[in-house]
Design a protein around this nucleic acid. Sequence first.
RNA 1: GCCGGCUUAGCUCAGCUGGUAGAGCACCUGAUUUGUAAUCAGGGGGUCGGGGGUUCGAGUCCCUCAGCCGGCACCA
Length: 644
Amino acid sequence: MINITLPDGSIRELPEGATPMDLAENISKSLAKVAMIAKVNGDDWDLMRPLPGDSSVALVTRKDEEALEVIRHDTAHILAQAVQELFPGTQVTIGPSIEDGFYYDFARDEPFSTDDFAAIEKRMAEIVDADLPFEREEMDRDAAIAMFEKMGESYKAELIRDLPEGETITIYRQGEWFDLCRGPHLPSTGKIGKAFKLMKVAGAYWRGDHRNAMLQRIYGTAWADDKQLKAHLFRLEEAEKRDHRRLGRQMELFHFQEEAQGQVFWHPAGWRLYRTVTSYMRRRLEANGYQEIRTPQLMDRKFWEASGHWDKYRENMFISSIDQEEKILAVKPMNCPCHVQVFNQGQKSYRDLPLRLAEFGSCHRYEPSGSLHGLMRVRGFVQDDAHIFCTVEQIVEEVKAFCELLKSVYADFGFEEPRVKFADRPEQRVGSDEVWDKAEAALRTAAEASGLDFEYNPGDGAFYGPKLDFVVKDAIGREWQTGTIQCDFNLPERLDAHYIGDDNDKHRPVMLHRAILGSLERFLGVLLENYSGKLPFWLAPRQVVIATITSDADPYAEQVLAAMKAAGLNAETDLRNEKINYKVREHSVGKIPVIAVIGRKEAEEGTLALRFLGEEGNKQEVLPLAEAIARLCDDARAPDLKRG
RNA sequence: GCCGGCUUAGCUCAGCUGGUAGAGCACCUGAUUUGUAAUCAGGGGGUCGGGGGUUCGAGUCCCUCAGCCGGCACCA
């Protein structure tokens, strides 16, 4: 007999060779029905796999979050089986579970098409109906390699070869079909259920390396039940509606065209939003000891050679030449080297440090065509960039002040806390280990002191120093880096920046590269998606539409417009010969935060009926004109100004 | 950059196996003067992404280029 300890501490006795399934049945029939896998001494364990002896066992049921991973992984397996049955000659590679679903990468000459999905899904459903047991089998390494080679599954053979010696090789059988797999799996395919759906096909490099062959990846989503699946599909639809590219068109904010790939044409409303954001940032920076500068767009190639960019970043740089001159100029991809030039003018004393130079720096980078994405990844953009020149001793204080400023700015824009990643020294780096020790410690101390909840991103630092990256998610769950702060000991050296210390000697300053919003373009994209286009009043580029009910009210509407404009509000009139229902709908759809309705009554009484976006039904406030404008002006003040 | 898909009116999209283009919304005109999410009627508008080819005939088939979309890779 073996003793099994349950999560509640109780102990059950089971015969030798008993499985977690036996345990579940021993506890209750209903538990046996919903059990998916087990955790044995903390390890994943198939329900039908004999227990190793005395152990502590927890059963994972269909309701548990962890069950989803197993369902998704199993669904990937039946996808692979279905595909191999329907498309003979297709090689299988890997197929893990991922967020919301799974994928499987196949090697096949003919591309898969979404038109194939119906047939594949049908076959998958048949495999579920067949309720094939998943059977675990351990194999000898060489035998496994030989077997997969013989089957023509060279990718699988390669996978086994690369497994560490001594690792147990297991395969899982489901009927005739089997796959190399670590497990765990459900007892049988019937347990998977049918709450899955194939979503898309995509290319993906074998082992994520662009030098390798391109495989065909089929993505799918899978859930515990139909209700969850439907909810997920609904979420996707909703997410699509808040895509900033769609909102940009609907709200007439910006457009792109192929003659200026990756560069934005900002329309009046969009540019007003842009300016609201930059004005806000300017105030915040000035209040926090930054000085704004402006540096050139084009600099001589020699300059970029000195900075190291020509060597390290050349393929991302736009260059320019002119007929009459030999010189080659490069459009700046970053502002940092230019900022060093400003620092280098005249002599700097330790008393000048920290020196914080800020620029709304226009940069251009030749990004790979496949990576361009609306406002999120562009070739021409503006950074809210700044470089802090300071001493090593000042790093902690400066980073801390930066993190606090960043948090406050994000809060003003209504963001949830961004994900923060702390990236330390990469393989390829410059500078001594002592300096790295110091820089990393300083950055970490400062991040902790600022109360940031960050995760480690080992080895992903810049070649010149460690960094903190701030990452937000877009409507479809893709993550984008916005803010960053990076310690740099390298560029000051290369471009010979120095200051005179209190010892009357020359010293190298440290440079902190930092941005809060990152790329203005990207930030605005994220902002739009975050609010589904329903921007808070202070940011809204179109704040008020004055909508008349009858043309008798037109003169009063003009008067209201003039008063609002004089008060600095972004207001416009809608005097069209349309019903008020029509106007309200159109401007609500257009995400105008406030509709000021004017009928005969308001015109006579000198009032305004204010209707606020998002508030259902007849909820409105009727206020005397002056009061209404005062109220709106109060709402229109940026958060930093409200704080006074 | 790589793989796949897509590109038809200002926008969203129809157009079966080839027979010289349609809808809704928007726009314009007229009627309606209207009280909180679409008033009615009429009208104009398209080199079907560019180029090449097959064919008696191409929006539809083939080639090619570009852009966009989805992934992958990239993001110093």
